[in-house]
Design a protein around this nucleic acid. Sequence first.
DNA 1: TGATAATATTTCGACATCAAACTATCTGAC
DNA 2: GTCAGATAGTTTGATGTCGAAATATTATCA
Lengths: 151, 151
Amino acid sequence: MPTHFTGSRAEMRTLDTFIKLTRCTNSLFTRLTERNTLGDITPSQFAVLEAIYHIGSMTQGEVSSKVLKSGSNMTTVIDNLERDGLVRRERDAKDRRVIHVHLTEAGTSKLEAVLPGHIAALVEEFSILSVSEMEALGNICKKLGKGRESK
Amino acid sequence: MPTHFTGSRAEMRTLDTFIKLTRCTNSLFTRLTERNTLGDITPSQFAVLEAIYHIGSMTQGEVSSKVLKSGSNMTTVIDNLERDGLVRRERDAKDRRVIHVHLTEAGTSKLEAVLPGHIAALVEEFSILSVSEMEALGNICKKLGKGRESK
DNA sequence: TGATAATATTTCGACATCAAACTATCTGAC
DNA sequence: GTCAGATAGTTTGATGTCGAAATATTATCA
């Protein structure tokens, strides 16, 4: 199933693992998308709403780093959310460079309408794994995600 | 580190695992991008070149499904690759709906120039895991990627 | 104070991505 | 043979994504 690459044993092992990891997340996200649990908001929009919902109002820059997206990108995503009335921008009174992003009523209810189904879909997708497999996956991902130099 | 969500134990465990998986692949891909091992081609372009390089000339639709991207997307990616002379389109003589995509000389050398560094970067990133961890990760991902209904 | 550095966001250009509508071509049933 | 439906790609429109350069504002410090 992997590639037709021929290399050292370590290279083969790494490529094989990498491809399985990539395919796994790809098809997992595809299946989640197909379930359409998010309704008419996009995954990015969901991520932003969800972050603000759980953490509270944040600076636009804080939202970017929470959601692991670039700042320039966050501008457009929040533009669209604001256009749809789901969030509200507010200039900081003291430091007028920063913008605070708040959920509106509509944003809160939109998220609350969507969140349970999303979580249920996740639980269902992951139910193919045993508890110990989930723990192992979590631990290995944590290690791999952290990387070498992040001491 | 996960979210502030409060739910059943199964929900918490699932969310925690999901977030670790997502963060892991996110930061892994970010680090790979920062290494800039692909030079001036994009990840999508690399994926297409790599697929054709290893599997051989393919129909545009076959490339789409290999790379797990939509057909409409593949049109533009291959447009850009063709513009840069890395790939060549060729109508099928018998079935004129079909387009075969071939690597050009330039495409082959571009890929061969870039592939070793890419693999080396992968090996380095994954070297933080032990062999048995890589195997466990691969197996769990295979299971999770396959999903419930794909018997 | 006033020049310079730092920070937060926006703008711009290029690419990616998908769904839906469309074109061209082929196949099969009649 | 012809026409309906299937199939391969393309186009279009909306969103997302990044990096680099621009803008606006605030902080620093000589």
